[in-house]
Every structure is written in C-alpha cells, then in structure tokens.
Design a protein around this nucleic acid. Structure first.
Lengths: 243, 243
DNA sequence: GTACCTTTTTGTCGAGTCGACAAGAATAGG
DNA sequence: CCTATTCTTGTCGACTCGACAAAAAGGTAC
C-alpha cells in the first residue's frame, strides 16, 4: 500500500469559538474583527492555532477564550465539531476544532486586552448574512446555534445563560430567546418544577423592580432532562411537516 | 504576544471509526487487530492518518471504511468528536477525528483485504472491558454508542441498521438492542406509525418463516422525530432518578 | 383438512401530560 | 387605598403513554 518512506502529512490545527450569551432578550454571539490577512477587517469567530506541540485542544480553547474574549469563568464549554475542508483557509491546510461556549449576561468585552476588537452581535444578523463572516465561520455558527437549541431540550444548558441565582421568568426568557418561540408561563413552571434536580430553590424571593417578587433558584445537579422540554417547531426546515 | 518568527506547530491528523451493526439481536462493533507498534496485537478501532495534505477528513473516513472494513455503501456516517490529548499516542502528538458509522447486518468482514484482520465484537464486551482496546479507543466507543442511543430517540437513525426493506418488528429489535430495553409492540407500532415520514410502506407482506407475515417498510424522508421516541431509562448513570 | 403454534397487528382503558386560558397573590407607585 | 405590573397557581378538555388482552394470518403436524 505505502512504501516504507511514506510519512503522514502534518497539519496546522486551530480552535474556533462560538460564544453565546443573552443580551436584552436576544441571543448574541461574540465576534472579533480580523487584523491580518486573509479576510482583513472581516468579522470572525475568536480562535487561533495551537500554541505548541503539546497544548491540549480544550486548553487551547480556554486560552483563546481568555486572550481574545477576556473570559475566564465559563459555565459551559464543549467541543462542537471539526472543520477541515482542504480549501477553507487560503493560506494552506488548516483544520479547526470548533467549540461552543455559553456565558451569562456580561458587560461589554473587556477593553485593554486582545478582546478590545471583540463585540457582541445578534445571532439573527449573522444567520441572515447581514454580517458576513470570514472562512466557513457562518456554517460553524449555524451548527453551534442549532446545538444550543437542541441541548436546551434535553439538558440543563439553559442555566448556563443565567447568573448564579435567577428567577424562573429569566430562565423562560432564555428558552424563548434561543428557540425564538414564546412559551406559556404556567406550562413552563409546571415543566421545570416537575423535573427534579433541574433547578433548586435559593433563598427568599427577590424584588425585580415592579410587580410581585420572584422566587430565586440556582442550577441543580440534573444534567439530562427526562422527559425533555419540547419545542413545537421542527428542528430544521427539512423533515416535512410537524408531528 | 508572539515574536515574528513564531510558527504554529504541525500535527499528525488521523481518523478513527466506530462502526456499529446488529448481529443476532445484539449491538456489535468492528475492531481490527493491530499489526504494528504501539499496542501490537491489541484490538483497536479501524482508522489511519490522512493520506496526503489535501485529503478531506470525511473522505479519509470513507477511505478507511473501504480499506480497513471493506465497506462501501454506508447508510450513516457522521463526525463524532476529536480526540487530541497530548499523550494519547506514545509516538508523539496525534489528533484523531472519530466518526460514527452505522451499517445493516452484513456477512463476516470481507477476507482478502485489509479487512481480514477485522471482526465484529459485541459492544457489551468492549464497554465492560472484557476486550481491552488500544489508545483511548474505549472512551471513543463509549461516546459513539451513547451518540447512537441518543440519536435513536430524535432521529430516524434506527433505519440505518436495517436492510432496505424491513418489518416493524425488525425496527423494534434495533431499538431494543441499542438501548438494551424491551419495548411493548403495541406502543411501538403506534409511535412509529404516528410519526409521518419515519417509515413508508413497501409492498405486500413478507413471510418471515413461521407466524403471520409482516408488512414491510422502507426508510422514510423524515430526519427528525417530533415527538421523540422515549426511552425510560436515564441517558447516563448520572443525573439522579428517572422522570 | 383440521387443530395447534407462532408471529404480527389492533382494541381498549386508566393514568398522566400538554396546551390554553384565567384567576389569585404580592409588591411598587401614585 | 387604588392601580399597574409581575409572579404564581387552578383548571379543563384533548391528547399520549403504558399495560394488557385479543384478533388476524400464516405455517406445520397429523
């Protein structure tokens, strides 16, 4: 098959980050503006090459999260997928391991760091291609958002969008913003409170300005939700009608 | 941050394959016996390095599927995840993109090819560590099997385990084998036939030896199942009780 | 041909869940 | 004290699920 002198090719390995958060009831994504070729001036996902031969992939993702976004405490970070089409980077063969990160609401990206060039962008604007992205980053964003939408159904991921203590209304707003669907408060309460371990009470009610004070909760130990939260709208456009 | 002479490291990239099928009502996995160091003689997942600098990752997976397993028509092939811990391969830094493949019941691995060294192994034996694997392949298998179990719930993946036309009993056996749970035939029928586009009728009933002939179906166009098939047992051991 | 065996397919009933809508409870502001 | 606002709970009909049972449709032995 191979002669004895054959050696496998060596590839440049990068990590890219889809960082999601909620701002003003809408789902946002952190983008940086590229300062070097290719795609100078174009918006792109935070990311970069492995620092050295021995750096772990997940560690590289955390390092980029810190260096490019100024984020250190990440409630949720997982691998999303690996993108390695031969021509995705005009500089040559680059394989990128994309990650999905979810953080609670935060102030503006920390200035005075590499993150100065970063800004939160509504996900809708990206998916509708009103904000063009570098490389194949649009596809990565689409798959990251879909992963988040799906994980809201059968895991407790929604709490990663919330501060340490939160109200059920805030949690509901997470679902509504990520799914893009309004939910009935009564049914949402029933579902969440019927799922033992999803959220746990955290102290006395807290006034949220006007109206009746809301009970506060923190994230529970439950990782998988059975039965799942159900969004009525189909996952993807494909697949025919509903039900 | 970096001086101008810094160059990112170049990494060896491999693909590994978790190939699942059903044999005799049990879930099986294709393993090869390693012929070279490291881990000579140990069972391992089929896989190998990228052939050249320009080979696409998914193409490499399909090539290994053909070369090492003798399989060309693959009903289902998807990326599973990327494993790149610095010390997973004693030869040096190797990053592996694992894939999950599902094929219908097949005869023994085709002899006379590289696949001669391949054999179907019950997944239970691997997960229970009765069959030790090379590298971190046990973890990859565990995540592949869990992915398959999960996808049975909300996608039509089960049909990938079946021949082109199949009976609903055969489909039910797929669920039972992969999930390791018995299912009630009445409820399974109701659920499958209530999910439009999951399966479509394919010709007149076919006798299966003894007993009433069964109606036959083929895979339908539906990719996502709403509402999902529900397995009562929790996804992982973690997460507390059921419900 | 008839009785029996096996396997597929359907009936049904009670318990539980979901969607929809409405009402009650608790606070701030005037 | 009255009202606007927000959180929380009640309730009802439709639907779904789990469990069990029975009917349907062949094959096979005698």
């Amino acid at each position: 098959m191979h002669d004895d002198t054959w050696e496998p090719p060596r590839i440049l390995l990068a990590v890219d980050l889809v960082i999601l958060t909620l701002r003003g009831g809408r789902l946002h994504l952190l983008l940086v503006r590229r300062g070097i070729e290719p795609f100078v001036g174009r918006a792109a996902l935070p990311g970069g090459f492995l620092a050295d031969e021995r750096e772990d992939i997940l560690s590289a993702a955390r390092r980029e999260l810190r260096e490019e976004a100024g984020l250190t405490d990440i409630p949720h970070l997982e691998q999303l997928g690996t993108y390695g089409e031969p021509d995705r980077d005009p500089r040559g063969r680059v394989v990128s391991v994309a990650h999905l990160a979810v953080v609670p609401r935060l102030p503006e990206p920390v200035a005075g760091t590499d993150a100065a060039a970063a800004e939160w962008t509504p996900v809708d604007d990206v998916l509708a291609e009103r904000v063009p992205l570098a490389f194949d980053h649009l596809r990565i964003v689409a798959e990251g958002v879909e992963r988040a939408r799906s994980k809201l159904e059968h895991t407790g991921l929604a709490t990663a969008f919330c501060p340490e203590v939160f109200t059920l209304t805030e949690l509901q707003q997470v679902y509504e913003a990520v799914w893009g669907t309004p939910l009935d408060p009564r049914n949402f309460y029933r579902k969440v409170q019927g799922t033992k371990g999803f959220v746990i009470p955290a102290g006395p009610p807290r006034s949220t300005g006007t109206g009746r004070p809301a009970r506060v909760y923190r994230a529970g130990p439950r990782r998988d939700l059975y039965p799942p939260m159900i969004r009525t709208v189909p996952t993807t456009a494909a697949g025919g009608g509903k039900r």
